[in-house]
Amino acid sequence: MGVAIRQAGEADREVLVRLLDESFMQDPVSTWVFPDEAHRRDVHGKFLGVFIDVALAEGRVDLTEDHTAMALWLDIPAGVPEGEDDTPARMRETADPENERAELVGRLMGEVHPHDRAHAYLLMIGVKPERQGEGLGTELMAPVLERCDREGIPAYLEASSARSRVLYERLGFVFMGTAVQLPDGPRMWPMWREPRG
C-alpha cells in the first residue's frame, strides 16, 4: 500500500486530538461514556487528549503523513505497576468531572490488563471515518508488530467494536476469553498476540 508514516510529537497534538475525536465520535464505547451527542461533541476531544498526552510522554504515536490515521503505543514492563494509575481519574477530571463513566471505562480496562509479561500495548488506533476499511490501521500497526516478532515481544489491545475485533484477529490477536461488559453498555474485548516466527 505504501502509506507514509512518521512518529508524531508534541507539535502535532492538536492534529492528533482532532483526528482521534473524529475517529471515535460514533464508537460504541464513546457513545456509552457520553450518550448525549451534543455534549459528546463538546468534551470528547478533551477526554481522548489524555490518551494522546500519555502516549506522547511515555510511548510513541505513529501518524500518517496525510493525517488520516494514527496509532498510540506504550511499552508495558512485566509486573504490577507501583501505585494506582491516575489516568482514569485524569480522564474524568479533564473532560467531564460529573460523569463517572469517563473514569469507570479506564478502571475496568485496567482491571483486565495483563501484567505477567512485558508487551507492546496498542492504546488506541484511529482512522478518519471516510478512510476506514482501506487498510490504514493494518499499515500503521505493521512496523510495531514486525518489531514485536523480531524481538519476541507479545502485543495487547482492547477492541472496542466487533468490527475492530475482526481486524485484530486477522493480525494474529486472540480474544483472551473474558469480555469487559460496560454497565448497560457495549462490550470490549481484551486481545493478546504472541510474537510470530
Score class of each variant (00 low, 15 high):
Arg90Glu: 15
Asp116Cys: 00
Val50Ile: 10
Trp32Pro: 01
Glu103Pro: 05
Arg170Gln: 14
Glu14Trp: 09
Met25Phe: 11
Ala142His: 13
Lys128His: 10
Pro88Val: 12
His39Ala: 01
Asp85Met: 11
Gly133Pro: 03
Leu182Ala: 05
Gly106Leu: 11
Arg90Ser: 10
Gly137Met: 04
Asp85Asn: 15
Trp189Leu: 01
Met91Gly: 06
Ile52Tyr: 07
Val180Pro: 02
Val174Pro: 05
Leu48Cys: 05
Gln132Val: 05
Glu158Met: 02
Pro77Cys: 11
Thr68Leu: 14
Glu65Thr: 13
Glu151Pro: 00
Asn99Ser: 08
Gly133Met: 05
Asp85Leu: 11
Ser160Ile: 11
Leu72Asn: 09
Asp96Val: 03
Gly197Ser: 13
Phe34Arg: 01
Phe175Val: 11
Ala142Arg: 15
Arg147Thr: 09
Asp42Leu: 09
Arg196Gly: 15
Met25Thr: 04
Asp75Tyr: 13
Val180Lys: 02
Lys46Phe: 00
Ser164Asn: 15
Leu74His: 10
Glu139Trp: 04
Ala142Pro: 01
Glu65Lys: 12
Ala57Tyr: 02
Ser164Thr: 14
Ala11Val: 14
Gly49Leu: 04
Pro190Ser: 04
Arg13Pro: 09
Leu56His: 08
Thr87Phe: 12
Val127Met: 00
Met25Trp: 05
Pro186Asp: 06
Gly133Asn: 07
Leu123Gly: 00
Glu130Lys: 04
Arg147Trp: 09
Leu16Thr: 04
Glu169Asn: 09
Leu16Pro: 03
Asp27Lys: 00
Phe51Ala: 10
Glu98Asp: 14
Arg165Asp: 08
Phe47Gln: 00
Ala71Cys: 09
Pro97Cys: 07
Phe47Cys: 01
Asp66Cys: 08
Phe175Gly: 09
Gly79His: 11
Glu100Met: 11
Leu145Thr: 06
Val144Asp: 01
Asp42Thr: 06
Arg117Ala: 10
Arg101Tyr: 08
Arg90Ile: 14
